[in-house]
Design a protein around this nucleic acid. Sequence first.
DNA 1: TATGAATGAGCCTTCATTCAT
DNA 2: AATGAATGAAGGCTCATTCAT
Lengths: 212, 212, 212, 212
Amino acid sequence: MGYKKSEISTAHIVQAAIRVLARQGYARTSLMDIAREAGMSKGAVHYHYPTKESLIFVVLKTACDAVQQRTIDAWSTGGNPFESLHASLEELWRVRAERTDEALVVADLLAQSLYEEKLRPQLADYYRLAAAQIHDYLSTHLYAIGIKPKIRVELLPRLVIGLLDGLVMQAFADPEALQPGDVVYAIETMAQSMFELGSPAIQSASEPPSPS
Amino acid sequence: MGYKKSEISTAHIVQAAIRVLARQGYARTSLMDIAREAGMSKGAVHYHYPTKESLIFVVLKTACDAVQQRTIDAWSTGGNPFESLHASLEELWRVRAERTDEALVVADLLAQSLYEEKLRPQLADYYRLAAAQIHDYLSTHLYAIGIKPKIRVELLPRLVIGLLDGLVMQAFADPEALQPGDVVYAIETMAQSMFELGSPAIQSASEPPSPS
Amino acid sequence: MGYKKSEISTAHIVQAAIRVLARQGYARTSLMDIAREAGMSKGAVHYHYPTKESLIFVVLKTACDAVQQRTIDAWSTGGNPFESLHASLEELWRVRAERTDEALVVADLLAQSLYEEKLRPQLADYYRLAAAQIHDYLSTHLYAIGIKPKIRVELLPRLVIGLLDGLVMQAFADPEALQPGDVVYAIETMAQSMFELGSPAIQSASEPPSPS
Amino acid sequence: MGYKKSEISTAHIVQAAIRVLARQGYARTSLMDIAREAGMSKGAVHYHYPTKESLIFVVLKTACDAVQQRTIDAWSTGGNPFESLHASLEELWRVRAERTDEALVVADLLAQSLYEEKLRPQLADYYRLAAAQIHDYLSTHLYAIGIKPKIRVELLPRLVIGLLDGLVMQAFADPEALQPGDVVYAIETMAQSMFELGSPAIQSASEPPSPS
DNA sequence: TATGAATGAGCCTTCATTCAT
DNA sequence: AATGAATGAAGGCTCATTCAT
């Protein structure tokens, strides 16, 4: 073995870093904090990741992958297309709204990327993959049953993601303004209304949570 | 006059801070940077704002107000309701996509607020005001001409803002994925489709930029 | 005043640095050591010299100037040319052999310059000035009384300096091998024998210290 | 065989250390650099040399021996005494001026010895041996043909070495000031003029490179 | 023998803050 | 109202050394 240990430590540090970053944010997190959370010395962290930047890089990739995975899982449910869409959107929202460590890290580093160019390619990949995922889903499920989009189909997933990401920031700054049920219903409505209705039988799986 | 040089300097510092923060981001900006940009000594900045936090606070308020002002102005155009909506959304997008100093600062500090609770009330206010603004507009203009929303009307402005904010981050990480025309058209379509069409004559002011 | 204080501190730090460097050498001296010697905090040192490098630079210049000054003074004595030469060489040797702080710093940084290119121009200046000084002296005093050099006159001062510097290192590693009187006598003999004797009356001011 | 891999590795490390030290200097060389150059792990280096100091010690000895060897070889040429002297001095200069790894290491550690007493005895030995070598040569070759020195004969080799060492540092800081031909010619002239001319037939093997 | 992992002290530097003037 | 000087805590990083394997 020998190197196994290294891999374990390496992953261990990344997980610790994600926890600390989720708790304190990039700007307020020092390598010492991460080392302490990982239960090692600062030197040990530097042994595995020569610079803070290199660690953050791996952290970002790992966090993106984790969020990605939940996104992928979210769409895998079968059944009634509308129920499926609803369930998937709900899960997508939950990933963000639950503020999992990974989602927080992605959000935080996304903001850092405004001023740290090197982070951007990774995030661009992340967005692209998520968009492709949603794109596939919508094409297969909605389009297939005779509905065609009113807008460029490539754009649709971007809108869904953008909406989710934008709303979650709002929800954080002003939690009372957005109820989970509201959000999912709204996105769903939006998603559906972006398609031309081929058949009259479009029916939402959910009811408006609080019809005004 | 009640105010003297003090107030001038005070505002001067805030403007300098906004410029520097927009350029470098919160995490990478020191008080020295701000002092230098303001053309004063570090001591002078501390004279006016005893702590960095107190300065950031005023900066956030000022930046929010500035973005707010452009948002308000955006909706004030009259004329054809659909053209007006289009123009307004375009302006709203522009404020963000042009990356004005103030919009950048708001975005950056929004991320900081994830870990600095004190910033949140200010941002909540910001969101509320913007939402109220849009809400008023939509109520007055669309609702009035016999269109009624499919979802809770309070939610609508939140969606618009969330979408704009979420998309602008995406656009930054992955610029090629989102063309300005696309975005505005998509939001517009979304906004309109969130209303029950009372009359058959709904007509977008814009054409789909690249109908797929 | 105000800035006066700064100048005082600035010089104070340099003097402290010279003392510490002379005592511990460049490789073993930290900014903390210098700050402690100067009776200030590390931060204060950094306030006056933003980097260690910038401080070392000033230190080198100051130390060179100090050694230079003693070299200049060494030659200013008048009187019998041979006595004068002897006295001057003696002083030159003394500056080095006494291991004044400044001479030590110059020697130490000279060695550092092997691997730190930036130090070299300053040292080149130092050598040039010293050479010019000796060159002037020899031209005026020896040449004038009818003696002409056997080798390129520009080279002569270089030899004198090289010999002094090289011997002092030897003297340090192996102190017993070189007695002060020996050294000066030898250099003097060498210096004189580098000239063609115009008159037969060349007579050393000193006697061989220990004729073997 | 009494020795095994151990001794090979031991020598291997020393050679690697000399290469790295020559390239980077003592102050800038870490054990990691040496281990990397030797193609082994840091741990392995520590296995053979428990401390950095112990390694440096052997390095110094090895480097001194290498320079010494070239010095010895330099004097072994026979033939005309003056040509021989010239050739020898030329070689001595070349060893230093070519900046062989070993000569660089000796020069660098010589400077370190200013502050690390333990290095001095080794260097004292080095100087003594070199001096003895030159002393033998001069005694045998020059003295034998009826020339007797003007100064203590023990001092003579010290002067030659000092001059060479001192000049090489100057040449490094200010390369244009000293041309190889100049230097050798000058030292030769000096060496000769340190002897009383017993016979009139003293004739240099070389011509002044640029007679002024 | 040799390695990779880990440690801990120390280094240079940054920075918000304080304070005398 | 404003400045320059100084502080001290912290940050990222390097490195000789130790140690289990």
